[in-house]
Every structure is written in C-alpha cells, then in structure tokens.
C-alpha cells in the first residue's frame, strides 16, 4: 500500500510495511486531481539493529541513536528499511516511533517488514479484512519481506547493546547523545563549527558538559512520535504514586481520541493527574507551538516529540528530545536523569 499525506511524519505508517511518505501542498493537489504522483525511485538503505536492548532503552532511544550516528542529512535521497532482531522485538507502537522519525535524518520514509506482531495488531481492528479476505490478505502480507541476499544502496548495522537512553543537546535531532555522555567539544567531522556554536548558544549548554542533573522547566509527553497507548503506559508506570517536581509543568497529550479514551479506561489519566501532570486534549499540541501550548523563551522542555529546532515549541524555547520514560523521569526529578540507573531520591 502507498500512503501520502501533507505531513513529513506520514512515514509512521511504514511500521506496517507500507510505502508512506510526506508531500507538499502542490503534490496533494496533484493527488486529488489525478490519484497519481510523479516520483523518482529513491535509493535504498537498510539499518539493522541486532541484539537485546538494555534496561531503560525504548524505541525512541534507538531512533535517536541512529540519527545521532547518521546525521540529519544522512538519509536524504533514501528510503529506509529497519531490520534486525532488536527492531523485530519491538511492539507496533515502538515500530511506529522508529519509522516516524525517518525524516529526521532526511529519509522520505522508513519501513519494517510485516511479521506476526504486525498481523496480531491489525487483526480484529476496524476496517481490517475478515474471514476469507483476511486469509488472502495475510498470505499476501507474508510476501512483503526483503529477499535473502538483496543488495541495498547503503547498509548500516548497529549493536543494540551500545544503545543507552538518549537525549539531544542541540537544535537538530542529529545532535543527540547517551544521557550519561558529555556534549561533544566540537562539531562532528564535516559539520560547521559556527553552526555547532550557534546551536549550543541557543540551548544555553556548554560544549563538553554533562547534562545529568541539568534542571528542566517543562515536560511534554505527546506528538505523533510518542503518544500512543504504550507510550502513556510506560510513562504512567514510572510516575505512579510520585509527584512532578514543584518547578516543572508537565503535560500528557494523547495522540488521538482513541488513545485518550483507552487511557481513561485503563485509569492512566488518574495516575497522571494524581502525580501532577496535566492530561490534555488529543492533538499535536506543544510539539510545534501552533496552539497555546508553548514553551516560554529560555525554558528547557524535555519532549517526546521529533524536532528540537530553534523555536519549534515557541520562540526561544529550548527542546531536549527524549523517550517517554526519560521524559517522565525528568518530570518527577525536575532534572535530567538516567533511567537505566536506579532513581536517586
């Protein structure tokens, strides 16, 4: 199936083995007029993550790690297949998080071959085929695997054991590091030193510093990257029975009405509000500062969204991207903490 939409995070659907990518308004017009879209075939890239994930490491950490290694332009011109045992071990929600952020390294789309996890997720849902139609569809979906020995234009393999909880320190998603690491002293090879300095100045973060214990002001758990039911469950499990730090404003924004309803049925909203989070209406919210949910100038926001660009969450806002687990822990602690280590009082 091919899905296009006027949003670069359309690639989220790649988790189901679809070819899904974002297009501009003029191309939307083209689709409406003709049901067709003129495209050049992109180059192919396979990114494999092999092995078992470390404690405290979730899908968001994997994709932030990949982008930090490949850079924000590393995937430009490519369509990506994510593969390997660590990717296969993820739930559909986790796979959507991975595919969602493909554009953050410049790739138009990313996809994961459908498997038993995919089929189990789809079966019985609204609009899913039933009966004989299901059997036919299933037989076809099972063929949507990359052939043994297929050659990709580019191929990368990472070891899951090397991935730790990740955060970003700069103003693009490629400027990420393990939460326990130090901010680099200088820009990466091939990147401009001026751009690197400008970015750190904006963030008010010193080159070479550690961000562990860095105080934060806002926490946003939401966006098309991380606002599915599993993300809310992960966060709820961590915050249950605790309180958001006094100086932190923390928001939970479900990705859709469906997720909001399910979260309420599971009592997650109560866990969040008891802990001092605001449980808000479903939508994009503070991901891009388009509505009133903005982060004020100079304030630090640990956000589960996808872009830490200058001003993305409001003019002058400083965004630190992280997983729902790391974000929830930061809300409670009032500062950046390493969720792979026992929580400090």
């Amino acid at each position: 199936m091919t899905i296009v939409c006027g949003d670069s995070h359309t690639s989220t659907h790649g988790a189901f083995g679809c070819i899904a990518f974002g297009i501009g308004t003029s191309q939307v017009e083209q689709v409406f007029a003709t049901q067709c879209l003129l495209q050049r075939k992109p180059k192919s890239m396979r990114i494999s993550v092999e092995g078992e994930l470390q404690p405290g490491v979730v899908a968001k950490d994997i994709i932030l790690y990949i982008i930090s290694r490949l850079g924000v332009g590393g995937g430009t011109g490519y369509f990506v297949e994510y593969a390997g045992s660590a990717i296969r071990s993820l739930s559909m929600e986790g796979r959507m998080t991975i595919c969602n952020m493909s554009i953050e390294m410049g790739a138009r789309g990313g996809m994961i071959a459908p498997d038993e996890t995919t089929f189990a997720y789809v079966k019985g849902r609204e609009f899913a085929p039933e009966g004989e139609a299901w059997d036919e569809a299933l037989a076809y979906w099972k063929t949507l695997q990359t052939d043994e020995g297929a050659i990709f234009d580019a191929e990368f393999t990472f070891d899951a054991a090397d991935i730790q909880p990740m955060i970003t320190y700069g103003t693009n998603p490629g400027m990420g590091m393990a939460v326990s690491d130090h901010v680099p002293e200088q820009s990466k090879a091939g990147e401009s030193q001026d751009t690197f300095r400008k970015s750190l100045d904006y963030m008010g973060i010193a080159a070479g510093s550690s961000l562990l214990g860095h105080p934060i002001d806002y926490v946003f758990i939401g966006s098309c990257t991380n606002s599915r039911i599993e993300d809310l469950r992960i966060a709820a499990r961590l915050v249950a029975g605790q309180r958001v730090a006094d100086h932190v404003k923390a928001m939970i924004v479900p990705g859709s009405q469906q997720v909001a309803i399910q979260a309420k049925e599971e009592g997650l909203d109560k866990i969040f509000t008891d802990a001092g989070f605001e449980f808000r209406e479903a939508g994009c919210s503070a991901c891009l500062g388009m509505n009133e949910d903005k982060v004020p100038a100079g304030k630090y926001c640990v956000s589960t969204s996808n872009r830490n660009f200058e001003g993305r969450q409001g003019p002058g806002a400083r965004t630190i991207l992280a997983s729902p687990l790391t974000a929830a822990a930061a809300a409670i602690a009032g500062k950046i903490v390493d969720v792979s280590k026992p929580m400090q009082a």
Binding site: S192, T195, G289, M290, R307, G311
Partner: peptide, 18 residues
C-alpha cells in the same frame, strides 16, 4: 546565509501557518 541545517521551522515558524 552561511548556516547549515536551516530547518523549515526557522524558514517559517508553525505559528504563522494559519
């Protein structure tokens, strides 16, 4: 404009898209 990685939010922030 000798700046790298100029993103779409710098070119036109989301709050002006309406």
């Amino acid at each position: 404009l000798p700046i790298e990685d100029v993103d779409t939010d710098q070119i036109i922030p989301a709050r002006f898209l309406k």
